[in-house]
Amino acid sequence: MPGSTTADFMPIIFWIICGIIAVVFVFGIVSVVANVRRARRAGHNPLTMQTDIATKLLDSDALSSQPSVEARLEKIEQLRAAGTISNNEYDAARARLLTQL
């Protein structure tokens, strides 16, 4: 338009930006509500879910620097098969590992 200035378009730009912000806000609310409903349907408390997951992970062997019992049993089996340890040493090591369960 002839004679139009940037100031003439400011209200339009303002409402477009407000509309975008409103859409993002509504999407965020809908997303949170959907996630809360799904968590509750699965039998979880959505307010404590992050802590529940963290404590289960910390209590599990997933973060352990030690190999699993199965891997350690396989290792002593390999040592016995290679003749590195005797059958008596194998039996003692296997008994020790199995008592840790």
Rank of each mutant, 00 (worst) to 15 (best):
M1T: 11
M1R: 11
M1Y: 09
G3Y: 04
G3M: 15
S4L: 13
S4P: 02
S4T: 06
S4G: 06
T5K: 01
T5C: 07
T5W: 06
T6I: 14
A7I: 06
A7Y: 11
D8S: 06
D8K: 02
D8T: 08
M10Q: 00
M10K: 01
M10S: 02
P11S: 10
P11D: 03
I13N: 07
W15V: 05
I16D: 01
I17D: 00
G19P: 12
G19V: 06
G19W: 12
I20T: 11
I20W: 08
I21L: 14
I21N: 04
A22I: 14
A22D: 05
V23A: 14
V24C: 06
F25G: 12
F25I: 13
V26T: 10
V26Q: 05
F27M: 05
F27H: 00
G28C: 13
G28F: 01
I29L: 14
I29F: 03
S31G: 02
S31Q: 04
S31M: 01
V32P: 06
V33D: 10
V33Y: 11
A34I: 05
N35M: 02
N35V: 01
V36R: 15
V36P: 05
V36A: 14
V36E: 15
R37I: 08
R38W: 10
R38K: 14
A39L: 11
R40T: 12
R40D: 05
R40K: 15
R41H: 12
A42M: 10
A42K: 13
A42G: 03
G43C: 09
G43L: 05
P46M: 15
L47S: 07
Q50G: 08
T51P: 00
D52R: 07
I53Q: 08
I53H: 02
I53E: 01
I53K: 02
A54L: 12
T55F: 05
T55E: 10
K56T: 03
K56D: 13
L57N: 01
L57F: 12
L57Y: 10
L58E: 09
D59P: 00
S60D: 01
S60T: 02
A62M: 13
L63H: 10
L63D: 09
S64L: 12
S64N: 14
Q66E: 13
Q66D: 10
P67R: 09
V69E: 01
V69M: 09
E70N: 08
E70M: 03
E70K: 05
E70S: 06
E70R: 01
L73F: 03
L73Q: 04
L73D: 07
E74Y: 00
E74T: 04
E74G: 10
E74H: 05
K75I: 00
I76T: 14
I76H: 15
E77Y: 06
E77A: 08
Q78Y: 07
Q78K: 14
L79P: 04
L79D: 12
L79I: 00
L79H: 07
R80T: 05
A82C: 03
A82H: 04
G83L: 02
G83W: 03
G83D: 04
G83M: 00
T84N: 09
S86C: 07
N87Y: 01
N88R: 08
E89M: 08
D91C: 00
D91Y: 00
D91A: 04
A92M: 02
A92Q: 04
A92P: 01
R94P: 11
R94A: 06
R94G: 10
A95S: 15
R96I: 01
L97Q: 03
L98A: 00
Q100W: 09
Q100M: 10
Q100D: 08
Q100T: 15
L101A: 14
